[in-house]
Amino acid sequence: MAVFAVISAGGILFDDRTLVGAAIWAKPFKFAVSFVAYALSLAWMLSLLPRGRRFGWWAGIVVTAAGVLEMVLITLQVIRGRQSHFNQETPFDAAVFQAMGLTVVILWLGALAIAVLLLRARFLDRATAWAVRLSSLIALAGAAVGFLMVQPTPDQLAATDPPVVGAHSVGVPDGGPSLPVTGWASTGGDLRVAHFFGMHALQLLPLLL
C-alpha cells in the first residue's frame, strides 16, 4: 500500500486529468494511505492475541489479499481514465465494480473474523482490551457504511440504464462543491464521513488510550 501511495502521489503531481470533480489519482492515493494505517493497526492488534494467532494470521492474509486486489482494480480504472466506483457504463466497467464489491465483502469478513478473535481474547490490561474491542467493532460498522453507497439514488432509479448506480453524497450529486483534501460534499450529506471515522476508529481509540 505504501508503494501504491507513492505511485498515486506521482500521478497527482504529473497527471492533470480529473474525474468527478477531483484529481483522477486522488482516490487511489487516499485509499492506499488509509490501507497503510488500517493494516498496521490490524497487525498490532493481532500481535496482542494470546491464543488463535494462526487463525488470525490467515484472516490477516485474507484482508491483505482483498485490499491489494481492490487497489489493483481502482488503479486499473484510473489508468483507463474511467470511474472505478458505481460505474455501469460498459460491461467491462460493471464487471470491475462487481469484482471490487466482492473484494470488499471478503475484506469485511476477514476483519469480522479478527474482531471475533479480539472479543474473545483475554488481555492483561482492561483499558487496552476495551479500546481494541470497541475500535474493531466500530471499524466494522464504518466499513459496512460502504454497502449503503451502492444503493441507487432516486434520480438513478428514475433513469433508464444509468451509467452510474450508487453515490457517496446524499441529497446532492457526486462531484459537486466539496471540502478540501477529503473531497466530502459541502452542500449536502456524505456517507464517506461515517465510513472514514468508523474505519479509522481502529487507530483513533488505541491512540486516545
Rank of each mutant, 00 (worst) to 15 (best):
A22S: 06
G10V: 04
H168D: 05
P152L: 15
A129V: 04
L73R: 09
P162G: 07
F196L: 10
V145S: 02
L112R: 03
R82Y: 02
R82T: 00
M45I: 15
I7H: 03
L140V: 07
A139I: 01
L119G: 04
F55R: 14
P206R: 11
S186D: 12
F92C: 00
P177Q: 09
D16E: 13
A99K: 04
D16I: 03
D125N: 15
A9V: 04
M1L: 06
M1I: 01
T153L: 15
G110E: 11
S34F: 11
R126S: 05
V6F: 11
H168Q: 07
L157S: 11
T128E: 12
V172G: 07
I74L: 09
A43W: 15
D161E: 14
A167M: 06
M149T: 12
W57H: 09
M1Q: 04
V105E: 00
G188L: 14
H200Y: 12
L207N: 03
L19H: 06
A143L: 13
S178K: 13
M199G: 15
Q203E: 01
S178I: 00
D16M: 06
L112F: 14
V193Q: 03
D125G: 04
V145H: 01
P28N: 02
A201S: 15
M1P: 04
R82P: 00
H168N: 08
L118P: 06
D16K: 12
A131Q: 13
G101N: 10
G10L: 14
L73Y: 06
L207A: 15
V164S: 13
P50K: 14
S178C: 01
S84M: 10
S178N: 11
I12L: 13
W44H: 09
L49F: 07
V72S: 00
M1H: 09
V132N: 03
S136N: 05
M1V: 04
L73T: 05
G175C: 06
A43R: 15
S186T: 10
V145W: 00
L119K: 02
S178F: 09
W130A: 12
A37L: 14
G188W: 13
M149W: 02
E70Q: 14
S41F: 13
V33P: 05
F196C: 00
V20E: 01
I106K: 02
A139Q: 04
L134C: 10
G101R: 06
H200L: 13
F4Y: 08
M100D: 03
I79T: 01
S169C: 14
L109V: 08
A39Q: 12
K30C: 01
L209W: 09
D161L: 11
D93F: 01
D125S: 15
G11S: 07
A115I: 10
L76S: 03
S178G: 05
V6M: 07
A23H: 10
V6D: 04
Y38G: 02
L19I: 10
M149S: 13
